[in-house]
Computed example of a mutant assay.
Amino acid sequence: MDEETAEQQADITRLLLHHIHAPFTGTLYIRGVLPVPPPAEAVRVVTGAGPGHTPDRLTAYEIPLRPDDDPVTAGDITGILRALHTGTRLYSSDSVSTVMGMTLVRVNPAAVDKTAATSDDNALTILRGVACPFTEEQPDPRLRGFLFLQQDLLRLYLDTEDIPGVIAADVRPSGAITALLAALPSLITEEERMTAAGDDPHCSRLVDLTTW
């Protein structure tokens, strides 16, 4: 995996996290950001209305990270999503498929007139820049994406220097969060906890931490 792509996926995930409880438009929320596996350079942003978490109520939009060699930002993605959910939009059959039970739409950013940033968007940029200034030092493990599988089941997509590829870790938000976060770096490297990724193409292995 191109490290630049991995960093961009991680940065976009971090900057879109607030939309899990703040709608990006109307009643639509982000329910996941999925790291598209190589050789593609893209993210899949999963959206849904209200509290829905079941796959049949979610849509994943695959957005290239560097169309025309210009990096896509989290703000660009928010603008694209808002435009896609404004009015009626038709998609060609070759741009629509399924992934993990969700409808998957491959987006051509050049064909979308993304909406302008709102004053709240700009205020968030200012506040985030002051409270959480950018640093080149990457966390380990690094969050590359996430997906709400159920109301109380969250899948984290992580990478670490110790293991190649992306590791998915299933956790329960209702569990012992502080203890889980402290132990997470070591838990995701324990071979005995790892299983095959199943129908999830966004990771190379899966760790079940729902009962930890």
Rank of each mutant, 00 (worst) to 15 (best):
R14E: 09
R14F: 09
H18Y: 13
H18R: 12
H19Q: 12
A22P: 07
A22G: 07
A22L: 11
P23M: 05
F24T: 00
T25Y: 06
T25G: 12
T27E: 08
T27D: 10
T27K: 11
L28R: 14
L28V: 08
L28S: 06
L28D: 13
Y29P: 10
R31F: 00
R31Y: 00
R31D: 01
R31N: 07
V33K: 02
P35D: 06
P35A: 08
P37W: 00
P37H: 01
A40M: 10
E41Y: 14
E41P: 12
E41H: 13
E41M: 07
R44D: 14
V45Y: 01
T47G: 15
P51V: 12
G52S: 15
G52E: 11
H53I: 04
H53A: 09
P55D: 02
R57S: 04
R57D: 06
T59H: 14
Y61V: 02
Y61L: 03
E62H: 13
I63R: 04
P64Q: 02
R66H: 11
R66T: 09
P67Q: 01
D68Y: 11
D69L: 11
D69H: 15
D70Q: 15
P71W: 00
A74P: 01
A74F: 03
A74T: 03
G75S: 05
G75V: 01
G75Q: 05
G75P: 01
D76L: 00
I77V: 14
I77R: 02
T78I: 08
I80W: 02
I80E: 02
L81Q: 05
A83C: 14
A83H: 08
A83Q: 08
H85K: 05
H85R: 06
T86A: 14
G87P: 01
T88S: 11
L90R: 14
L90Y: 13
L90T: 07
L90P: 01
Y91T: 06
S93M: 10
S93P: 07
T98A: 05
V99F: 01
V99Y: 02
M100T: 10
M102G: 04
T103A: 04
L104C: 02
V105R: 13
V107C: 05
N108A: 15
N108K: 09
N108F: 08
P109Y: 01
V112K: 04
V112M: 05
D113F: 14
K114C: 06
T115R: 08
T115G: 04
A117R: 07
A117G: 06
S119Y: 15
D120G: 07
D120R: 09
D121H: 10
A123R: 15
L124H: 13
L124G: 12
L127P: 01
R128Q: 15
R128A: 14
G129A: 09
F134R: 13
F134C: 10
F134V: 14
T135Q: 10
T135N: 08
E136R: 11
E136N: 08
E137M: 03
E137H: 05
P139A: 01
P139D: 02
D140S: 06
R142F: 10
R142G: 08
R142W: 08
L143S: 03
L143H: 00
L143W: 00
R144V: 10
G145A: 06
F146Q: 00
F148A: 09
F148W: 09
Q150R: 07
Q150A: 07
Q151E: 15
L153Q: 14
L153R: 15
R155L: 14
L156K: 01
L156V: 04
Y157G: 09
L158F: 08
